[in-house]
Simulated assay, not measured.
Amino acid sequence: MADRSKSSSGRDVRLDMFRGLANWAIFVDHIPNNAVAWLTTRNYGFSDAADLFVFISGYTATFVYSRYMRASGFLVSTSLIYGRVWQIYVAHVLLLVAYLAAIGFVAQSYGHSHLLDEFNVRHLLDDPIETLKHGLLLEFKPLNLDVLPLYIVIMVAFPLALWAMIRRPNVTLAASFALYVTARSLGWNLPSYPSGNWYFNPFAWQFLFVIGAWAASGGADRLQPLLRSKAVIGIAGVYLLFSLLIAMAARFPELANVLPVSLLSAFPNDKTNLGPYRILHFLALAVVVVHCVPKEWAGLQSPILRPAIVCGKRSLEVFCVGVFLSFAGHLLFESVSMSLAFQSLVSSGGIAIMTGVAYYRTWTVSLRSNSSSSSAVASAS
């Protein structure tokens, strides 16, 4: 029987669903003091939606572009990858300009000057030309605009990584791990403007991207017997419970007081350099989720999950809209109400808008596809 969770191209629908859910979670998490964020994984372990987003990006990029590299060679696939990089870069620049304009307008017109510092945009007023220049160079990043620059940098290096992954997947994974360890040991990172370093260290986060690429290159299939064993699933479950305990202790002093200080200090929130316990938490979560949500799960065909799947397929557009909406949500919280009912309304409304954008983009893409097919038929007749 055919795998109903896959599209006609063989794409695993679960990837789109979870990336769509990750986009929703990132939007909700980006709104400060949002009680709805308690529904996301960020509060219950070491990893969060960003880890999921990067891993799936590595998986899907390898799934898509490895076919071109095998069929058409390195140059053709590199050209296609860099075409995608250009799309992501243009999306980032447009988002950056719109983001800066919105924050500056609200801060100056409505007396919310604190937003300039809170969203790291005050330097734009002090030196706009220099700030915009560094913004185009991916060095200046306002609050919540860190993910796309990370993705751009990783994708720039992706053609070589993909070429190596097709030929020596295990060696490529080992090299990526070596870079991860070296970067963490020597403090490698890229500089930010006007000071500091990147919030998502690309030398560290590339490892999670490459793990996704390795899984898509057959690594996940080779590990299936091991991942399905009760022992591995049990170990993963125990680690998830342990990370839940540490995460709750970080949020509730009453629990932290009964745990050893040395235990809590051993697991700081090292998101910038992708702490190894974050990777282990994500992989443990992936083992349990894949076990509970197999490819043939009938629920993947449910209309309830369809919005998340569509958002996952139109991930770039949905992510950009979500980042902008998170600022709007923060402003609404400050200006209107911080009640749970209003937070729920804003959060659900934002997800609805993101979903609407995904459906609209899917519709416009289908229109272009149908138009191209019609033109081809007309030319042939």
Rank of each mutant, 00 (worst) to 15 (best):
S5R: 10
K6D: 11
K6L: 13
S8Q: 13
S9M: 12
S9G: 12
R11L: 13
V13G: 15
M17V: 15
F18M: 12
R19W: 02
N23R: 07
W24T: 04
V28M: 05
H30A: 15
I31R: 07
A49P: 01
I56C: 02
S57M: 03
T62C: 07
F63M: 03
R67F: 00
M69D: 03
A71K: 11
S72Y: 15
S79I: 08
L80Q: 12
L80P: 06
G83C: 05
I88L: 02
A98P: 05
A102N: 06
I103P: 05
F105H: 06
Y110Q: 11
H114D: 15
L116Y: 01
L116V: 01
L116F: 00
L124G: 10
I152F: 04
V156I: 14
L162T: 03
L162A: 04
S176W: 02
R184L: 12
L186T: 12
S192Y: 08
S192D: 05
Y193E: 04
P194Y: 01
F200A: 07
F207H: 03
I211E: 01
D221L: 13
L223N: 06
L227H: 13
L227C: 11
A231I: 10
G234H: 04
G234K: 05
I235W: 11
I235S: 11
I235A: 13
L245H: 06
A250R: 15
A250H: 14
R251S: 09
F252S: 11
P253D: 03
N257D: 14
N257I: 09
V258L: 06
V261S: 14
L263K: 01
S265R: 14
S265G: 10
A266I: 05
L274K: 07
I279C: 06
L283K: 06
A284K: 10
V289L: 15
H291S: 13
K295C: 10
E296R: 11
W297A: 15
G299L: 10
P303G: 02
L305V: 02
L305C: 03
L305I: 05
A308N: 08
G312L: 04
L316T: 06
V318E: 02
V318T: 02
V323P: 02
L325M: 05
F327A: 01
F327Y: 04
S337W: 10
S337K: 08
Q343K: 09
G349Q: 05
T364L: 09
L367V: 14
S369H: 14
S371M: 14
S374W: 14
S375W: 13
V377R: 15
